[in-house]
């Protein structure tokens, strides 16, 4: 049974069986990544464009590796080195790309909804690699894969997302995906970084990190993105750290063993202390490896079949 959509735009409204299919398919690719030859000929002859119009290193590298390990031909297109800088519109850029016979576009863009816009003007399969502060579906899928790998299931677990919820596409995609999969989801952070009415998405809110640690099975700690804040939402990094940093000391009030996740890159000593990031509770590096497998699964499911 294939995916119900020919694009991956977001996890909002994505059926449970689609998420399940992606996670199950990723298990196969996880095995491929353990082989001496970590490459399969599956997408031979297909051309994929990585259209990264906002800075990104790890997501682009992860996608590129996934594409190459499926034997696709890969073209990287970034904002600084592109015609967009010369004033070309997004529409003209992708029309030109499409004229060169491409099969898929992986797009990262600062404007929300830009992947959706591409689906209207081109025939290629579109994958959202982050659109503004809207969604980042492959990050949430790899987070869910990593949780399932560790716990065997997602249903019934309590996952708390900590940090800047307002500006985070990782948080939003995780909330959609995790609630669909039957997890209990909560968010924790300073009041200024938590959207009003977020409870309507079915999540609980903690303003105190210790209460969140007491309840959760998993803490997904987000990066404090200073570059994304045009206004000041908390007085200083020091104050943020004082109230919300996840530290060894604070984890002592956990009632059960707690798993630590982070989408990277980490600000060590700000949202997460170094000893916690490197502890046995942390699955941060597994997340990175699983990211390649999950992206291979998405590319496979969109790139083959009817």
């Amino acid at each position: 049974m294939p995916l119900s959509s020919r694009h991956l735009l977001g996890l909002e409204g994505m059926p449970k069986q689609d998420i399940q299919l992606i996670l199950d398919t990723a298990t196969t690719f996880r095995e491929v990544l353990e082989r001496p030859v970590k490459k399969v000929p599956t997408l031979q002859g297909q051309t994929i464009v990585n259209l990264f119009l906002e800075d990104s290193t790890r997501t682009r590298v992860s996608f590129e590796l996934a594409e190459r390990r499926l034997s696709a031909d890969v073209v990287n297109f970034s904002a600084s080195a592109s015609s967009i800088k010369k004033g070309e519109t997004l529409k003209d850029t992708v029309r030109n790309l499409e004229a060169m016979k491409i099969d898929m576009v992986v797009i990262r863009h600062a404007a929300q909804g830009s992947p959706h816009f591409l689906t209207k003007i081109m025939n290629a399969h579109i994958i959202n690699a982050g659109d503004g502060s809207h969604e980042h579906p492959t990050q949430a899928l790899l987070d869910m894969y990593s949780i399932r790998e560790k716990f065997g299931t997602i249903e019934g677990l309590h996952v708390c997302i900590v940090g800047d919820i307002s500006h985070s596409r990782v948080a939003l995609s995780n909330i959609y995906g995790l609630t669909t999969m039957g997890a209990t989801v909560s968010v924790c952070g300073p009041k200024t970084l938590i959207p009003k009415d977020i409870e309507k998405l079915g999540v609980n809110v903690f303003y105190n990190i210790n209460s969140a640690i007491r309840e959760a099975d998993v803490l997904n700690v987000l990066r404090i993105q200073l570059e994304r804040q045009d206004r000041v939402f908390f007085p200083s990094l020091r104050e943020y750290r004082e109230y919300f940093a996840v530290t060894k000391e604070r984890l002592k009030c956990a009632r059960k063993e707690i798993t630590i996740m982070h989408p990277g890159p980490i600000n060590r000593g700000v949202e997460l202390s170094a000893d916690v990031a490197d502890s046995d509770a942390s699955i941060i590096l597994q997340q990175v490896l699983n990211g390649v497998a999950v992206r291979m699964a998405v590319l496979y499911l969109l790139g083959t079949g009817k």
């Binding site: 049974m1 294939p2 298990t27 399969v40 599956t42 496979y300 079949g305």
Partner: peptide, 23 residues
């Protein structure tokens, strides 16, 4: 062995094979 990823007809438009994995 699950040979799906090595099939020579993946580009053709028929139903998508379910991956079961190689062990």
């Amino acid at each position: 062995l699950d040979i799906t990823l090595y099939r020579d007809d993946l580009r053709e438009k028929h139903a998508q094979p379910v991956l079961q994995g190689t062990y």
